[in-house]
């Protein structure tokens, strides 16, 4: 009886030790398997027809994807700001097994509706505009952007109404316009809002744009048609900065697209892995004027170093 029990104890001890040996021998392989988990598949839904305006943000996204083990799919629309198409792509990506989505909403309301239709949806992080039901947002404080940009305008203001270009009223861009309008009206400056610059010469001598593309287009028209308004805009790409430098833009509210892209992907990955979230808070931005463009901190903000994305 006692013998049997001893034998059993022996077998158990030897078995445990043997399996520990095997386990520790095998662990490197197992660890390796665990160390290279399948890449997360992240889809980036833009609201533009091509991703050329997002080159810098894309670099940031790729940096984050690289560090955190994700793979990015950039998806564009066939028609600028077509929220219906965006919703369709969103559903297709969710069905296609995306682990998380980063969306630049074309229509936040439509997106909110879309997300509420799909309670099982994968985490969505938005850029630019906040959306209900999203796992996170990466954007500067929009009202503050509008307000600060309006204050920059007010420094130069010599009278006359201000034209606010607001192509997407319900998005974060609209919120920026609202912030600017509030700040301007507080000072009694007459304000007019429009979706785009009028085809003929605008009467206003002050124009504010709240979106990089609109800013760039306004600056290009101003340069090409030698329009006499002062332009205040947002953005940080090379094309916009060149306009700022040439004086076609008076002041620019700029933030790091690189940081925005990086943070968006990081948040998306964290949401997809259900890891602890580090809320980055709103993006920091600054108002840059043409003469300050080469100040060291503005250089870092406005011009991306073509840093090796490969490593």
């Amino acid at each position: 009886m006692k013998r049997d029990r001893n034998d059993l104890v022996e077998i158990i001890i030897l078995g445990v030790l043997g399996s520990l040996v095997v386990l520790t021998l095998a662990a490197p392989q197992l660890l390796q398997v665990r160390r290279s988990p399948p890449l997360l598949s992240l889809s980036i839904l833009l609201r533009d027809t091509d991703s050329s305006g997002w080159t810098v943000a894309r670099q940031g996204m790729e940096q984050a994807a690289d560090e955190l083990g994700a793979e990015l799919r950039f998806l564009t629309l066939t028609v600028q700001n077509d929220s219906e198409e965006q919703t369709a792509i969103l559903f297709r990506e969710i069905d296609g097994g995306a682990d998380a989505l980063v969306v630049v909403p074309a229509g936040p309301d439509d997106l909110t509706l879309a997300l509420s239709q799909r309670p099982d949806h994968c985490p969505v992080v938005t850029l630019e505009s906040s959306v209900e039901g999203a796992a996170g947002i990466v954007a500067p404080t929009d009202e503050e952007v509008g307000r600060r940009l309006a204050l920059a305008l007010l420094e130069d203001w010599t009278g006359g109404p201000v034209l606010l270009l607001d192509p997407l009223p319900q998005t974060g861009i609209g919120a920026r316009a609202e912030g600017a309008r509030a700040a301007l009206e507080e000072r009694g400056v007459p304000v007019r809002q429009a979706a785009a610059l009028p085809q003929d010469r605008p009467e206003e001598r002050w124009v504010m744009a709240f979106e990089p593309l609109a800013t760039q287009q306004a600056a290009e028209r101003k340069e090409a048609e030698e329009l006499g308004f002062a332009l205040y805009g947002v953005g940080s790409g090379a094309a916009i900065t060149a306009q700022l430098e040439r004086g076609n833009i008076s002041a620019l509210a700029a933030w790091s697209d690189y940081a925005a892209g990086y943070l968006a992907v990081r948040q998306a990955v964290e949401a997809a892995m259900r890891a602890d979230r580090q809320d980055p808070g709103p993006l920091a931005f600054s108002i840059v004027r043409g003469e300050d463009i080469y100040a060291p901190e503005n250089q870092k903000l406005l011009f991306p170093i073509m840093s090796s994305s490969g490593r």
Binding site: Y258, Y262, L301, S307, R311
Partner: peptide, 9 residues
Amino acid sequence: PRQQLIYAG
């Protein structure tokens, strides 16, 4: 190696 991240704060 991660200069851009440092520059972006």
